[in-house]
Amino acid sequence: MFKINDKTQWDDGSGQVIDELKARFGDHPVHFQRDDLARVQIPQKDLLPVLSWLRGDTPFVQLTHMTAIDWMEEGEFELVYLVTAPTLLTSLMICIRVDREKAQAETVFNLWLHAETYEQEINEMFGIDFPGSPRQGVPFILEAWKDIPPMRRDFDTVEYCARTHPERPGREHQDTRKYVGRKFGEKGFLK
């Protein structure tokens, strides 16, 4: 769904990494968002080879960020790994799509230790499994959560609140417009 741009404004160092990535792992779509940020969409099977190569053989040695996006309409999750090259001052967003019904991806904990927390949160909030990641199934923020993972798009926040936090017995629900009208008459409203 995103526009694919031509490579522009990237210096030789980062550009070379992109070229080599394409040569090694196939001509995957690259979107150059800014001078210091590009996005590469790769198949799920290439995730670990690509990230291992970036971590070991290129200046992209830092995992700055990791998150998931729920594309419910397309039946997929997108996992985004933001890797940064401190010497080149550029970042790459490595994106993979994961089947929503079989929500599972490989862990990158062995490449970056702090990925364990990102994977723990994504596991809890989206229900995506990372087999082998040390904190899978360990509660991060939620406790005793019995519902579907709350960051999924089909989780109904309003319905959950109504069910979990019922109104105090005897409390009269006040519709603001009716209440103000009853209390102050029509003059209560600014025309």
């Binding site: 769904m1 800014r34 940020l37 996005r39 700055t64 960020h65 998150t67 985004v80 933001l82 967003m93």
Partner: peptide, 22 residues
Amino acid sequence: AGMTYTRAESSRGEMGFMMVTD
């Protein structure tokens, strides 16, 4: 529709927003 990551230096270090619009 788009996706970006913006960053800024907070007092603690790098703070960033991964933002996705549709």
